[in-house]
């Protein structure tokens, strides 16, 4: 095998007590924590879903077809992310880079869509100051967007590491962190799509 086995604790992970990677335990613990984070934000939104303060209601505001397209984009990005990881696990670095670049690109499309949506809402007079509904909408979807942005930065980081030759096949579990995080961000969007967009606007169609 490679002559490059850095002699530091993290490289000795096959000696861990559970036989699992430190990185993966850490990311799953963190994602468990994130459930509480988004749980708080989503509960706030549910609590305030009718508090319009005389401003626009949810049904008057959201653009469901647009949001649906964004949902497809994010599902697609989860697939490319998973395929990227698979490629790295099999040692196909070129395919890995291509899939990761594609994932980052889809993520950017998502963020672009959100920027477009936010601008549009602001122009319609639905701003963070309008009502508790609007505040919780912007903070919840904003934090989700923030998570996507961090994900994109991490994907770019993976790309950089891979291009610098610092992401060998046997370190795929490092890339896996980002892919798991990305999957979680997609899961959160699944909930947001239903709870924030679909249910409160039912019956408008």
């Amino acid at each position: 095998m490679s002559a490059h086995v850095p002699a530091v604790p993290e490289a000795h992970e096959h000696h861990t007590s559970t036989g699992l990677s430190n990185n993966k335990i850490a990311i799953w613990a963190f994602l468990g924590s994130e459930c509480l984070f988004f749980g708080s934000l989503i509960s706030t939104y549910i609590l305030y879903h009718n508090q319009t303060n005389g401003g626009p209601t949810a049904a008057e505001t959201y653009n469901i077809p647009f949001t649906a397209i964004v949902s497809f984009v994010l599902v697609l990005s989860s697939m490319t992310a998973a395929l990227g990881l698979l490629a790295l696990q099999k040692g196909d670095h070129k395919a890995f880079r291509a899939w990761i670049a594609a994932t980052a690109l889809l993520g950017m499309i998502f963020i672009g869509g959100q920027a477009f949506e936010f601008t549009h809402l602001y122009e319609e007079g639905f701003t963070i100051q309008t009502s508790p509904l609007a505040s919780s909408f912007f903070v919840l979807t904003g934090f989700h967007g923030g998570h996507v942005t961090v994900g994109i930065l991490m994907l770019l980081g993976l790309l950089a590491m891979s291009l610098l030759g610092r992401l060998p096949q046997e370190d795929a579990h490092r890339a896996e962190l980002v892919i798991l995080y990305w999957g979680f961000v997609d899961i959160v969007w699944v909930i947001i799509f239903t709870v924030v967009y679909l249910i409160p606007t039912l019956g408008r169609g």
Binding site: Q51, T52, N53, P132
Partner: peptide, 11 residues
């Protein structure tokens, strides 16, 4: 924002 702004309906 209006999360805790009682006048606007915050709780």
């Amino acid at each position: 924002a209006d999360f805790f702004n009682v006048a606007a309906g915050g709780d």
